[in-house]
């Protein structure tokens, strides 16, 4: 078997830091786009953050959104051309802090699109500040004594939060720290895109990722921290899947 770059990725080399999970996730999305044969009708929305340059890496049409507004932008794209497959690619600051309203209401409306949510418990591009997903006690540039819930509140579990909304068809948390988990992550991304193709509604795949640069850890220790500390707080698995629960009841909307 020959190892090849997915067609849905351009030839531009990634700018991401060594060890960063973005490269793996980009590849998984591109593989899914290739396998479903949808590159020609896919439009992606890049966030503000490290992944803003995703618009250079995916071969499909791409739009760069203002910070946090990706799902409103994606709503406009999808409503204009419902035959397009639309996905957003967002970090935890983008999606769960500044973009909370856009996220919750896109989900509540059941916007038929796919959200790829990168949870690394930190703001990456700006240099490692506290995010809504930062754990209790976690030291960041803006929680130098560790996140204290008395003053800085509690971490947000986005999939669990969104799963209460009727418009959500799939909310699943995955990780890309092991081969097995990478395979699970790809399955979840593929399912999310397939649900969108079937018109099932809003789909979100939350992906636990490492940020060795801003965590200040080696790659090895980053993976250890992800498994030992991050994952117990954000358990991987399906949080909501309307397709699995009542497959026969879900109407296909064209």
């Amino acid at each position: 078997m020959k190892f090849e770059k997915p067609k849905a990725l351009t030839d531009m080399p990634f700018h991401y830091c060594p060890g960063c999970s973005h490269g793996i996730v980009h590849r998984l999305i591109a593989e899914v786009i290739d396998e479903l044969g949808i590159e020609g009708r896919t439009v992606g929305v890049a966030p503000v953050g490290c992944a803003v340059f995703a618009y250079n890496y995916f071969s499909c049409d791409m739009v760069q959104s203002p910070h946090g507004r990706a799902q409103a932008v994606a709503t406009g794209i999808k409503r204009a051309n419902p035959e397009n497959m639309v996905f957003t690619y967002q970090g935890d600051g983008d999606l769960a802090a500044i973009g909370t309203a856009e996220t919750i209401h896109a989900a509540a409306r059941g916007e038929n699109m796919t959200v790829i949510f990168i949870n690394n418990a930190i703001y990456g591009m700006t240099g490692g500040q506290m995010a809504p997903t930062t754990l209790i006690g976690q030291v960041t540039q803006t929680s130098p004594y560790g996140r204290d819930p008395k003053t800085a509140g509690y971490p947000m579990k986005v999939c669990e939060l969104l799963s209460t909304l009727d418009g959500v068809a799939l909310a699943q948390r995955v990780s890309v720290d092991t081969v097995k988990n990478v395979k699970e992550a790809k399955k979840a991304i593929k399912k999310a895109f397939e649900y969108q193709m079937e018109g099932k509604g809003y789909t979100i795949v939350e992906i636990l990722c490492v940020c060795p640069t801003n965590w200040g850890l080696s790659m090895k220790d980053s993976l250890k921290w992800l498994r030992g500390t991050l994952m117990p707080n954000y358990p991987v698995g399906v949080v909501k899947d309307t397709g699995a629960k009542c497959k026969s009841k879900v109407k296909e909307v064209k």
Binding site: V43, S65, P66, R69, A72, V73, G76, A80, N81
Partner: peptide, 26 residues
């Protein structure tokens, strides 16, 4: 056509941004 009531003025103008990028008059 599409009438969509956004969650805020911010939401509305960003939906406009998306629809405009998609090529329609919005």
């Amino acid at each position: 056509g599409i009438y969509l009531q956004a969650e805020s003025e911010i939401g509305a103008i960003n939906m406009v941004l998306g629809a405009s990028a998609a090529g329609v008059r919005t």
